[in-house]
């Protein structure tokens, strides 16, 4: 989440992906990510298919391939976490290096595993990006309710979203105000001690929390004045049409096919 990027990932457009009911979308994305993760490592035949599914979805939803790739790039830093696999998995030697007197053997099997994990992570993130770029948050809440997530939790998540942008703006203003006063002088060592800096940051967090707790008091009063009685109620959502159920089932079927295909090419049969 970089500062220069607008916080809300939703992209307002008109497309079949935007129009599809959020309950179907959320379920399909879950099933799809599950499928991606169930596919055995190193069944390379499936990977271009997954990639082309994602790219097609990017085109159909109007997000565009470029934006999808750009937004999903930040899975890259995580490669470092899986990098040791290259050397720790024993197998056919790819190359050997000697570092500080230790010799490390990179194996083809390690490379295989590493690539599989990174690609799966990348494809999963792409699917999630397509979901949030085409679905308003209200839709995601609707999906969560449909998945029978308890009402209280959905209500908390909904309220959180309502105040998220206000509080993020407050946090940013605090940071700006702090850095505006973080100056140095010639011939002085600036910055203060690390513990002091941490403590000031703690104060800022406390300040933010206190302001938001007091805000929640006002929210509560506003809710009371509109008839809130402690019971969390939500609108009943429209019943899904037959066509929408069919879309869901076809989507799941495609995922199952992909999985079976991967097992076949992985040599399971």
């Amino acid at each position: 989440m970089s500062n220069s990027q607008p916080l809300n990932p939703y992209i307002q457009l008109e497309s079949p992906a935007h129009r599809l009911d959020s309950r179907i979308k959320l379920s399909l994305v879950f099933v799809y990510i599950l499928t991606i993760n169930l596919i055995p490592h190193a069944v390379w035949v499936v990977f271009p298919i997954l990639f082309s599914v994602n790219l097609s979805l990017a085109v159909v939803s109007g997000i565009g391939i470029k934006k999808l790739l750009k937004r999903s790039l930040w899975v890259l830093p995580f490669v470092i976490a899986v990098f040791p696999l290259l050397f720790s998995i024993r197998g056919n030697t790819w190359f050997e290096i000697t570092l500080l007197g230790f010799s490390f053997t990179a194996s083809w099997e390690g490379l295989e595993r590493l690539l599989s994990i990174v690609l799966k992570a990348w494809f999963s993130i792409q699917a999630a990006i397509i979901l949030v770029s085409t679905t308003k948050f209200e839709g995601i809440l609707k999906g969560l309710r449909w998945m029978k997530i308890p009402k209280l939790l959905v209500a908390v998540i909904g309220l959180m979203w309502r105040y998220l942008f206000v509080l993020v703006a407050e946090a940013k203003r605090l940071l700006v105000a702090r850095s505006s006063r973080s100056s140095d002088l010639p011939d002085f060592h600036s910055g203060g001690s690390m513990i002091w800096r941490a403590q000031v940051t703690g104060y800022m967090a406390g300040n933010l929390l206190l302001r938001s707790i007091e805000r929640s008091d006002r929210v509560y009063m506003a809710m009371l004045s509109r008839g809130y009685d402690g019971e969390v109620r939500m609108d009943n959502d429209r019943v899904l049409s037959r066509k929408e159920i069919h879309i869901l089932l076809i989507g799941i079927l495609i995922c199952v096919c992909l999985f079976v295909l991967s097992l076949y090419f992985g040599g399971a049969f």
Binding site: S182, D184, V200
Partner: peptide
Amino acid sequence: EDVAYGPIYQGL
């Protein structure tokens, strides 16, 4: 502490 933040940061 608020008023001291700037000077402390400057290393005075």
